[in-house]
Amino acid sequence: MSQADVRRRVSSRFLTSELRLIAVRRRNQVGLAALAAVPVVLAVAMKVASPEGPPDRGDGPNFFSQILGNGFFVALAALGVELTLFLPIAVSMLAGDAVAGEANQGTLRYLLTVPVGRTRLLAVKYAGIVMGAFVAPLTVAVSGLVVGLLLFGGGDVTTLSGTQIGFGTAVLRLLLICLYLGVCLSALGAIGLFLSTLTEQPMGATIALAMLTVTSWILGQIPQLDWLHPYLLTRHWTDFGELLRDPVSPGGLTPGLLSAGAYIVVFLSAAWARFAGRDVTS
C-alpha cells in the first residue's frame, strides 16, 4: 500500500495561487482603480472649487478644510470618505466571493477532492481577504498622497493636537492609519467569510455584508441606541484620527483593535463550524 509514501509538504503554493487568483481578476483590478480614483476626484474638485472649501461639520476627524494648505490631507480625507462605503464594499466583494464563489463555479468540489482540507481552505481564503483589507486602504492613501502633493504640495503637517510634525513622520503616521484600517476591515472580512460559507451565491454574501456595514453606521448615529454602540462593528473605525495626535496616546486604538480581534475570532470560528462538516452539493 503506497498511501504511506504520501508526503505532505508545507508549501506556500496554494496561498500564492489564491493571491494571484485575486490579483488577476479583472473585477478586482477595476475595483482597486475605483478606490484609487476617489482621492483624485476629491483633490481636483477641491482645486477648482471656491477657496473656502466645505464647512467643517465638527463630526469626527474632518480633513477637508486642511487640504488646500497641504496635499497630505487629501489622503486622509479620501480614507475618511471611502471608509463609510467604498472600502467596506471592496472587502465585501472579496469576502463574499471567498467560498461562495468557488461553490458557484463548481471549483469548490474539485479543490476538496484534490484534497484541500477544509480548515486549510478557509485559512487560505481568509489570508486572501486580509491581504485585500490591507491593500485597499494603502491604495487609497498612496493615490491620495501622490495627487495631493502634485496639486497642493507638501510640507509640515499640523496634528489634531495643534502641533507640527515633519512630512516624513506624517507619512509614517499615514501608514499606521492604513494598518489600523486594515485590521478593522479584516474583522469585516471575517464576517464576510462566514456569510460566504452559508450560500452558493457570492453576490448574496457581498450584498449582505455591505448592508451590514451600512446598518452598523446608521445604528451608530442613533443616540437612543447608545447601549448598542460599543458592540457595533464600525464603532471604532474612525478612531484612526488618534494617530494624528501629538504625542499619539498609546491607548487610543486599543478598543478598536480589541473589538476587531473579537469579531475575527467569533466569525472565523463560526465559519469553521459551519464549513468543516457541511455537505458540499455544489
Binding site: 503506497s2 463555479q105 468540489r109 474539485y110 484534497p115
Partner: peptide, 13 residues
C-alpha cells in the same frame, strides 16, 4: 485522495 482522480458532475473551473 491524492491517489484518486475525480470528475464529479461536470467540469468546474
Amino acid at each position: 485522495l491524492p491517489h484518486v482522480g475525480a470528475l464529479v458532475e461536470g467540469p468546474g473551473f
